[in-house]
Amino acid sequence: MKLHVENLSKRYGDTVVLKDISYTFESGKIYGLLGRNGAGKTTFFNCLNQDILCNGGTAYLDGENGKDLLNPKDIGYVLSTPIVPEFLTGREFLKFFLDIHKDKNNKSLDEYFDLVQLSSADQNKLLRDYSHGMKSKMQLLIHIISNPKVILLDEPLTSLDIVVQDEMKKLLKELKNDHIIIFSTHILEIALDLCDEIIVLNNCSLETVEKKNLNTKKYKEKIIKMLKEEKSND
């Protein structure tokens, strides 16, 4: 399965954020989308998820059934600040979600909670009382259950403790074979540790950072150099 993005453009007034972006993403890989703060990573995701209108371009999925325009239904969008309905308990939220996605799940409520390691006491707390990490887990969990073809992750690990980070990384690695996963971050170490391919949002365009025969240190230097070029072009 492939996700083709063709000539995607977005500008706010006179400011161009994305300029004729064309790129092909494949399942089986986790793509690390790197860019400096304000480079347009979230805008790129919002365009794909059709949260905002683009000024041009298309995105389509090329799968077993041929080519189809990318539909928001095909996307699971995990936000950096997890937003969950705070009036529900974790257990109620998951039960509701399983009810409306009966066709997509084959596990029990408890099995899903085991997956993200949430204790039964925490399951019965209101989501408003969850910590940031617990909310992130819940958010990722429901995207795992809804099983979208494309998963967009907007800096989801940035403010999590290292144990939760590690659990989330394992989950994502398990998911990658059947999904197209694009993971945005501005933390290089997380990208290098988790992702199979690094792309940089550079001068309003996407560019792959080829690893070839470079060792990790040289690879890091190359990425930073590309990011600095973006700065000098600003």
Binding site: N49, P72, K73, I75, G76, Y77, L79, I83, V84, P85, E86, F87, I100, H101, I142, S146, P148
Partner: peptide, 15 residues
């Protein structure tokens, strides 16, 4: 405030 601003982030809810 208590419901839709969160739920509308999920595509299934906008069906």
């Amino acid at each position: 405030y208590n419901c839709d601003h969160a739920m509308l982030r999920y595509n299934f809810y906008r069906n």
